[in-house]
Design a protein around this nucleic acid. Structure first.
Lengths: 114, 114
DNA sequence: CTGCATCCAATTTGATACTG
DNA sequence: CAGTATCAAATTGGATGCAG
């Protein structure tokens, strides 16, 4: 891998896109259905408002999700996957399958859990 | 998603395992072939020795790679994928495919590059 | 309901020098 | 060759308070 490859290396790109601590979970939830801000908050209780907002802005800027604002009182905002986000669905699936395998594998290794 | 799900959620698990800035590239390189420390360094010139060491230690601790030490002078250490690392190969493939699509997509969006 | 601004803490990475 | 140790820099996430 040469210096000039970094701008076009898919692994570097993916690493940057998915680097957020909650990125994967947010994409996974939105892959199931379009959700409002408050729904996402309820689904991920350990994530604060401020942080959720930041991560959603990043995902929007990166073109992975769509933010739809309904001009009404009280405000309503919906988040959904963009086209690129939709194309991410198979990746989510393979990540989940591997993650599940890893969890089983870890439990086998970690005898304190048996 | 409830509080107690976090310990067994595959997405949280995967996020933690892949959170290192160079993790994906290292796994990708080792998926192609077993490599020595210095080879990895050459392949990723922007990564310093100290950081490479840390990331390799983390990957080893997480059970994704195997570190083999040859007791000789000068020292020789080889890194290769573990069984779990081998199982990660299809994920690497799907991440790469999506990353490549994303790069093409971005170039279409970013008119300054045309 | 949604979310911004600010400040702070924690974590991660990088630079540099040194070693068996 | 393959590290370790130390310190600085950068990035990130979290807490809190305020607002349209």
């Amino acid at each position: 891998m040469r210096e000039e490859d970094f701008g076009i290396c898919p692994y570097v790109t993916v690493q940057k896109l998915l680097s957020g601590k909650w990125t994967l979970i947010i994409l996974f939830l939105l892959a199931k259905k379009t959700m409002r801000f408050s729904e996402l908050q309820r689904e991920i209780p350990r994530l604060t408002q401020a942080t959720l907002t930041k991560q959603l802005r990043t995902l929007e800027k990166d073109g992975l999700i769509i933010r739809t604002v309904y001009n009404q009182i009280p405000p309503k905002v919906e988040y959904s996957l963009s086209d690129m986000g939709e194309k991410f669905k198979p990746v989510i699936k393979s990540l989940k399958d591997w993650g599940d395998e890893y969890i089983m594998f870890s439990k086998k290794r970690d005898c304190t859990k048996l």
